[in-house]
Amino acid sequence: MNKQYKFVLLFFFLLFLQVFILNNILFLGYINPYLYIIFVFYFPLKDNRFPFLFYSFLLGFFIDFFLDTGGIHAFSILFIAYLRLFFIKIYFRKIEADYSFFNLNDEPFGKVFNYIVTLTVIHHFIYFSFANFSFQNLSNVLTNTFFSSIFTLILYFLGTKIFSKTE
């Protein structure tokens, strides 16, 4: 299948997965995974970053439409989409010539783990801070970030283990 179509499919798959399934889990009454951010991890690195930033924003924005959250998801996913390159430089020590060959599956697990955890926690922290929208209940924001991040990460790593093609 053409790679572009694959990402259009991934886009809508993640959107509907998040809105209709993952958002109704509410484990212990408040813990939800926010798995749609793997769009940011999987989108290929390219020289021209405008499409990537725009599609990430659009995915967050569509989720906002469904969940009545204004622009919070769009804000937080765009934030990690922008920071992605910075963390790739730090963790994987890539230069611009390597970008087109970069693939998460070929990298050592330790580095991938650090990279994914950093971006996930940043995203969740921004999301919950805005969803709370006051300086009261700050402990709520931190516990929500902590538990939801764990939930998202477990789902992500289990998913990649199960669906990875390398046997």
Binding site: D64, F66, G70, L78
Partner: peptide, 30 residues
């Protein structure tokens, strides 16, 4: 890229604030 990022973030923030304040016309809703 930074300017584009900033531009989209401001759009998202505008929608967020618009959504959180009661009694305003809203665009992003279900």
């Amino acid at each position: 890229y930074f300017l584009f990022f900033l531009f989209l973030e401001i759009i998202a923030l505008a929608f967020t604030f618009n959504n959180l304040s009661f009694h305003k016309s809203k665009f992003v809703n279900s």
